[in-house]
């Protein structure tokens, strides 16, 4: 694999790195907010993967232009999919944060180990 090929897959490398960074934070951090931040990074990585795969070389935004019959378009479907996934991600984040608020109200802390001790 040449350097160019490696660089050519730049987006995929970033996807993998972000995925791991997010996963690491989810597992290692004890602070619930930090966990949630990790989860968001984890999800965002996947969004990046979907966005990357729809890119067609030389393609433009997928809006049909009748005067340019030879125009190449990027694949619109993954973008639509990932819009949905982003909505899902945001809802999850919102729900997670509101859970943290409730946890803070009931336990007075958002540190995982302290919560475990409290019960």
């Amino acid at each position: 694999m040449t350097l160019i090929e490696i660089l050519g897959h730049f987006n995929y490398w970033v996807f993998a790195i972000l995925l791991m960074v997010g996963f690491y934070a989810v597992i290692v951090k004890h602070n619930l907010i930090k966990k949630l931040i990790g989860l968001s990074i984890f999800q965002s990585a996947v969004f990046l993967m979907y966005i990357t795969m729809d890119k067609v070389e030389g393609g433009t935004a997928p809006i049909i232009q009748p005067d340019l019959p030879d125009q190449i378009y990027s694949n619109p479907l993954p973008q639509v999919l990932i819009l949905t996934a982003i909505v899902v991600g945001v809802s999850t984040l919102a729900l997670g944060l509101s859970l943290i608020v409730r946890i803070n109200e009931r336990y007075g802390t958002i540190e995982e180990d302290e919560i475990l001790e409290a019960d």
Binding site: L32, V46, L95, L99, I103
Partner: peptide
């Protein structure tokens, strides 16, 4: 139930995201 749900949320989201990667 709150921390239990939080744990479920984290696990569930990771599971769903894994699924999404596979589908992608």
């Amino acid at each position: 139930a709150l921390p239990a749900t939080f744990k479920y949320l984290i696990t569930g989201t990771i599971g769903a995201t894994f699924y999404l990667i596979g589908v992608g």
